[in-house]
Design a protein around this nucleic acid. Structure first.
Length: 295
DNA sequence: AAAAGCCCCTGGACGC
DNA sequence: TGCGTCCAGGGGCTTT
């Protein structure tokens, strides 16, 4: 599910539920997801107050009163579900306060919160993970210290992208998928941004490099497209595929506006373009593009 | 150093 | 209904 707009949507949905509450109890139902859990995962969380919930790239970060950060990544299939308070009091620690008949074998972690709500982490493919990092070590952590700029922040500029592109032989698709360049883009939004910018996913990234110290028109166009596609997706609550529902029970709507992603064989949506959407494989991932207007 | 492949894992869609 | 095959919003690790 999750690229930047989906993680942002999850963050906004969970923040009102989590922030200000404490973890009463944690049910950790397996020893690992993508990575093993910290051996003291539950102990380090229990009793902690969540002071803030934020997003960096595709990571969710909960700042805790204990000085730890709870870092969460949703992988390909991770999702959070919120269970409202039940008639049972929150002190029934160790008991499910939501309908156990509705429990899934892919519910891997249940956070029981003060106030009576529970947040369930569900992840069939288990490519997601959670880890605890002392907040002062977060920026230097291996997962974070090489991340590129936030695409919706003011650090993503044509100059930045052009400088990163210098000497790069890889295709634009791979270049934009690289989290060290722009953090938070994934397969869908790279395809969409390249289409909007009228750039071929196969074109060399070096085409973006500075010319006489000035970013090319192509590079300017790409930066504009990245920001625009992501902002529109965030505004629509992200994309919903395969029946995913966000934590507030809603689903996103951006998938209805895909120009190319998943639209193999369809007519290009660009006005005046008579091309059809094609698919090719790059880095083992499907790339959707219009061979007519994307050059 | 950069780029391409392989792998982790489950489930849904599709063809026979 | 029951296989087998392919595909899926990610990214770390190994190989070239």
């Amino acid at each position: 599910m999750p690229e930047l707009p989906e993680v942002e949507t999850v963050c906004r949905g969970l923040a009102p539920v989590l922030v200000g509450q404490r973890f009463l109890d944690i049910e950790q139902r397996r020893a690992n997801l993508r990575f093993p859990f910290d051996p003291d995962f539950c102990a380090r969380l229990t009793g902690a107050r969540i002071t803030a919930l934020r997003r960096r790239a595709k990571y969710l970060i909960a700042d805790l009163s204990t000085g730890d950060c709870l870092v969460m990544h949703l992988g390909m299939s991770g999702r959070f579900l919120i269970h409202a308070s039940s008639s049972k009091t929150p002190d029934t620690v160790g008991h499910y306060i939501y309908d156990t008949s509705a429990r899934s074998s892919h519910d891997h972690v249940v956070f029981h919160l003060t106030g009576g709500k529970s947040v369930v982490y569900n992840d069939p493919r288990r490519f997601g993970f959670m880890l605890l990092v002392p907040s002062e070590n977060l920026e230097s952590h291996a997962l974070f210290n090489r991340l590129g700029v936030e695409p919706l922040g003011n650090q993503l500029t044509a100059h930045y992208l052009a400088a990163k592109a210098a000497g790069r032989r890889s295709p634009l698709k791979s270049f934009l998928m690289d989290q060290r360049i722009v953090a938070g883009l994934g397969n869908i939004y790279v395809c969409e941004a390249l289409h909007q910018a009228k750039l071929s996913p196969s074109r060399s990234a070096s085409a973006l490099a500075l010319r006489s110290g000035v970013p090319s028109v192509r590079c300017e166009r790409l930066v504009t497209a990245i920001r625009d596609v992501l902002q529109r997706a965030v505004d629509l609550g992200g994309s919903t595929l395969r029946d995913y529902r966000g934590p507030d029970g809603d689903s996103g709507n951006f998938q209805e506006t895909f120009a190319v992603y998943g639209r193999l064989g369809a007519r290009c949506t660009r006005r005046g373009c008579s091309g059809t959407v094609r698919r090719r494989v790059q880095q083992g991932r499907s790339t959707f593009y219009c061979g007519q207007c994307q050059r």
